[in-house]
Design a protein around this nucleic acid. Sequence first.
RNA 1: GCACAGGUGGCCGAGCGGUUAAUGGCAGCAGACUGUAAAUCUGCCGCUCCUUGCGAGCUACGGAGGUUCGAAUCCUCCCCUGUGCACCA
Length: 446
Amino acid sequence: MSKFLPVDEQMDLLEKGAAEIIRVSDLRERLEESRKTGRPLRVKAGFDPTAPDLHLGHTVLMRKLRHFQQLGHTVIFLIGDFTSLIGDPTGRNVTRKALTRAEIDKNAQTYKQQVFRILDEKATEVRYNSEWLGKLGYEDTVRLTAHFTVSQMLERDEFHKRFQEEQPISLHELLYPVMQGYDSVALQCDVELGGTDQKFNLLCGRELQRHYGQKPQIVLMTPILEGLEGVQKMSKSLGNAIGINEPASEMYGKLMSISDELMWKYWVLLTDLRTSEIEALRADVATGRAHPMEVKKRLALTIVAGFHGEAAARNAAENWARMFQQKRFAGDVEEVRLKLEDFAKEDLREIIERREHFQTGPVQAGGAFLPLKVARLLTDSGLTNSNAEAQRKIKERAVQINGQIWDRVVWPLDASQLVPSADDPSRIEATLRIRLGKKAKIVIIS
RNA sequence: GCACAGGUGGCCGAGCGGUUAAUGGCAGCAGACUGUAAAUCUGCCGCUCCUUGCGAGCUACGGAGGUUCGAAUCCUCCCCUGUGCACCA
């Protein structure tokens, strides 16, 4: 009895959400072989330690790695510390600037921390490609590069385009695919994973392995995940990303904001639901038996739970429903503490000193309001970036204080709301719920 | 090194001596609409201040000077980017 699952079952999981596999038949074959011999496949994916902030787009690949891991194969998490001295030309129309050693180390560290939220750390082999690439001398490098021709390299889209457009291509950039390919040789990989944009690099591995008398690795490419707006690829710099370190409610809200159509791709690439189950859901929505929003809520819940746990995800879901569906305040809106004198309209020292006055008896109309500058309130609490912006929003009637639209410059704080602080009774404080559009804060002023 | 092109608000990109924080597009923010979103429509979209007014002031078109009543726009120098050339050219 093999320790591995039947090949059909393995394939079912591995093929889910894969954009392209070169080749499917080879993969089957090699899975058969591993099942017979009991030798797990060596599965590699390389990462440039350049982007320490991982988002869901990155996790597509990680999740696929985990699938291999779950099936009992060996996953090699390769940190391209050496290759990042060059910078991957993929998806770039300009030469990437090289990183310093210190930056690389720091990034690699952050990378690992985040990656092991998805991968099983104990079952992962972490390697650095400086281990072997750093040892290659000039002679080795020459021999290595001799396996490729210039026109092969220029076939590659990015290079081809840059060549056509008379954009510069640095010589060392041509080495990138070669080095990545050599990684596969050094690690004797059975499978390499990468995004579809990595196709060229991945295929170089096959080429080189042949030259070194190894069986060419199987290449499995994962699709590029579109970001929140559903058009461009998810990327932090485009501002359409969901970071894996984001708070639960943030994640949930962002997921709910994707289009109904994009939702299906997220289901496939970011959850463990079986393909058949996803198809069933899709059919239900198409026939009107399920509401797309409900299905999307389930998606958001599933994904958020994967990162923050079931309880936090449910909590985020409830808050989201309160906030957007009932247009009310969420339960755990961020609290901000501000100092009264920073934004009150006049010097309040004296008024504060007379606070006994406020605490006793009914407040007289007229004399018992503290005029607070609303614009400062918004900016200091972080709802707006500048007072000028805050003033505009006030005029646009976009600001709500304690649930009521407030379009005036000053908010009169009823002195009766200034009460002794719970933590420190010698201080007095007042609590305001301020809202600007989708964002809200609880502001405690004291 | 030489030649050419160019550096404008988050990005792209007009303007090329004079109503003006600077056309337009994208992004962003807010409002309406909706199951959230998208789409659409509307408004906003440098900063500060107040007596919140079609208010006042300040800062902006690579940098520094200069010419002018007045410059993003003209001149000088400098810095930066890109391409080409670098035997014949």
